[in-house]
Write a protein that binds this DNA or RNA. Structure first.
Length: 594
RNA sequence: CGGGGAGUAGCGCAGCUUGGUAGCGCGCUUCGUUCGGGACGAAGAGGUCGGAGGUUCAAAUCCUCUCUCCCCGACCA
């Protein structure tokens, strides 16, 4: 491609509204342009990178038996009503009506359509297992897009769905997809870790998220450097030993104490000069739960130790709630509790679901609120002073907490979720009646798995990792072009143009993707753009070189340059392409499923 | 949805306090000189000042409403 004809624009300065590094670089290098909040257009260079990544996805999906299909973005609401998600999902699901008044949705994912599709085609166990995938647009009306392509509303996703005759077949397939995912990210030059994750509204029994570790990540991960335990904070567990150690302490009499103006845990601990771990934190929530096909709201009173935080995901899952929201002050008072001085002692017990963290049940003599402004109780004991409905692990793991496997301190890190895989089981096949006849001639629901990777987020994550002060440093496997050919010709040096044109033709003939900077610009402009665009191999043709019969080859990722004889230059460039590609593939690893 | 910030040329910004001909840098066009790490000179093009309403002789500037975008949080198959 000739730069003089390319639809692109490099910017010397980043747009003011781009804060995240990858966003700034993608806009400055002319890969994407923002159209609306969380909605982007890809321009030619960005699209080429996207297609490269998607080609890798196709190869890896095909290698494990995947068959590519395409499903619609606009889908009938009826399908979503059948799965129930029409009612479960809120405003993230974009809904519209066609001219005939029929309800439609913009697909935010494709479980409904694929399950319906599979149900229509599959009728026998002989057709299973099967894996179908597509690379298609999704639309999720996110409340807050952010970070350029890190979190958007419209995006392209590679989503795959596998169908099995039984759980054993899915269990056998899962490690294959797990490895395929490592292959995809590895080939894209992105190091990821797989962590256990919440199954969320997808449902299912097992799930992993593939996380690229970066500070701009939206998820918090807990990692153990000793034994390799890794989990999303939403599901991470840890060893709660401290409470057990104090179990020997005897329960002391309940005592009411004046604590004027002390309405936070931090203030309470400093007022009484005790560690936060000797206090109980009250959290008031309202859970939406389905009972007899009806949504019902339930006031939930949660108690965790003062030094710990509630993990809402754990609580939501434990309660099988659809949704949790903070309770309003009026709602809190209505059950007999006092905001800021909340206590399980003396509330209208029948109106609340009382949940305590299991550590609370084992921690004696805590300080808790007295449900009276300016007063607290000392020596509150679970079991003696109040009886919880549930005692289970509902607190969030944090940096330094003991690893659940080996007790070494956990480390926390931020990550971007670039892919995820779920064992769905029969969640969708059951409600949508996607059944087949098994070997015994009985109807059974298909067992499903689903597997997703966002293209744009993956590109952004790669750039987030691979850049320097001058611009992007593409891994050669997904770079928009592999070679950036710089001609330093001027009007007075037509011989340089001639050589550059010849090299351009030779490289193209050799099948090497080359971006030819034939613009009438000064050397500095071209070199700076080359750095910004980050094409892995730069070939420079100038007066000096031409005189000596050489062109200059420089890798974007290194400072050194190499003189290449003009004769046979395509072969030498190809060798460099191969070496750079091999360098990335050498980093691929076999990851056993943990 | 709560909190904070911003909308003036393709990009980055000034002008607004104190109302009076809409500006600067980069980029873009033409010509000339230059030419191996973001050249120089000259001449140009490009604007409903986010939108609507109001105050005023007069509004980018003051008032009201509204839309959009960004950041933090809530949220996030």
């Amino acid at each position: 491609m000739r730069m003089s004809k390319l639809f692109f624009q490099t910017l010397r300065e980043a747009p003011a509204d781009a804060e995240v590094r990858s966003h700034q670089l993608m806009v400055r290098a002319g890969l994407v342009r923002q159209v609306a909040a969380g909605i982007f257009a890809y321009t030619p260079l960005g699209l080429r990178a996207k297609k490269k990544i998607e080609a890798i996805m196709r190869e890896e999906m095909d290698a494990i038996g995947g068959q590519e299909i395409v499903m619609p973005v606009v889908q009938p609401a009826a399908l979503w009503k059948r799965s129930g998600r029409w009612y479960e999902i809120g405003d993230d699901l974009a809904r519209l009506t066609d001219r005939g008044g029929r309800e439609l949705v913009l697909g935010m994912t494709h479980e409904e359509v694929i399950t319906d599709l599979a149900a229509g085609v599959i009728s026998s166990y002989r057709q299973l297992p099967l894996m179908l995938y597509q690379i298609q647009t999704k639309f999720r009306d996110e409340p807050r897009p952010r970070g350029g392509l890190i979190r958007v509303r419209e995006f392209t996703m590679k989503d795959g769905y596998s169908f099995h005759a039984d759980h054993a077949s899915l269990d056998a397939y899962y490690p294959l997809i797990y490895q395929a995912y490592f292959n995809i990210f590895g080939r894209a030059g992105l190091e990821v870790i797989a962590v256990e994750s919440d199954t969320g509204m997808m449902g299912g029994t097992m799930a992993h998220e593939f996380m690229a570790l970066t500070a701009v990540g939206e998820d918090t991960l807990l990692l153990c450097d000793e034994c390799g335990y890794k989990a999303n904070r939403q599901v991470a567990t840890f060893v709660k030993s401290e409470g057990a150690e104090r179990k020997v302490e005897e329960a002391l009499p309940l005592e009411e104490i004046a604590t004027p103006g002390v309405d936070t845990i931090a203030a309470l601990a400093s007022f009484l000069d005790i560690p936060k771990s000797r206090t109980a934190k009250a959290i008031f929530l309202v859970a939406t739960r389905e009972e007899d096909g009806q949504d019902k709201e339930q006031f939930v009173f949660v108690i965790v130790r003062g030094d710990m935080d509630l993990n809402e995901t754990k609580l939501t899952n434990a309660l099988k709630a659809r949704h949790l929201r903070p309770a309003q002050p009026a709602e809190i008072r209505a059950v007999g509790a006092q905001p800021g001085y909340g206590s399980p002692v003396g509330i209208q017990r029948e109106r609340v679901l009382l949940v305590v963290d299991d550590l609370i049940a084992r921690s004696p003599n805590l300080v808790a609120g007295a449900n009276r402004e300016g007063w607290h109780y000392k020596n509150v004991n679970c079991g003696r002073d109040y009886k919880p409905d549930l005692a289970l692990d509902v607190v969030a793991a944090a940096e330094g907490y003991p690893c659940p496997i080996c007790r070494a301190p956990l480390r926390s890190a931020r990550g971007v979720e670039v892919g995820n895989i779920f064992k769905l089981g029969t969640k969708y096949s059951q409600v949508m009646e996607a059944t087949f006849l098994d070997e015994d001639g009985k109807n059974a629901p298909m067992v499903m798995g689903c597997y997703g990777i966002g293209s744009g987020r993956l590109i952004a994550s790669v750039i987030e990792k691979h850049n320097d002060e001058n611009g992007i440093v593409w891994p050669i496997t997904i770079a928009p072009y592999r070679v950036y050919l710089v001609s330093l010709a001027t009007k007075r040096t037509p011989e340089v143009t001639e050589v550059a044109e010849r090299i351009y033709a030779q490289l193209q003939e050799a099948g090497i993707e080359v971006l030819y900077d034939d613009r009438d610009e000064r050397a500095g402009v071209k070199f700076n753009d080359a750095d910004l665009l980050g094409i892995p191999i730069r070939l420079t043709v100038g007066t000096r070189g031409v005189k000596n019969g050489i062109a200059e080859l420089k890798l974007r990722r290194s400072e050194e340059s190499l003189a290449l004889p003009l004769a046979d230059i395509a072969h030498q460039v190809q060798a460099t392409v191969d070496a750079e590609t091999a360098r990335i593939l050498a980093a691929l690893v076999t990851e056993p499923l943990t």
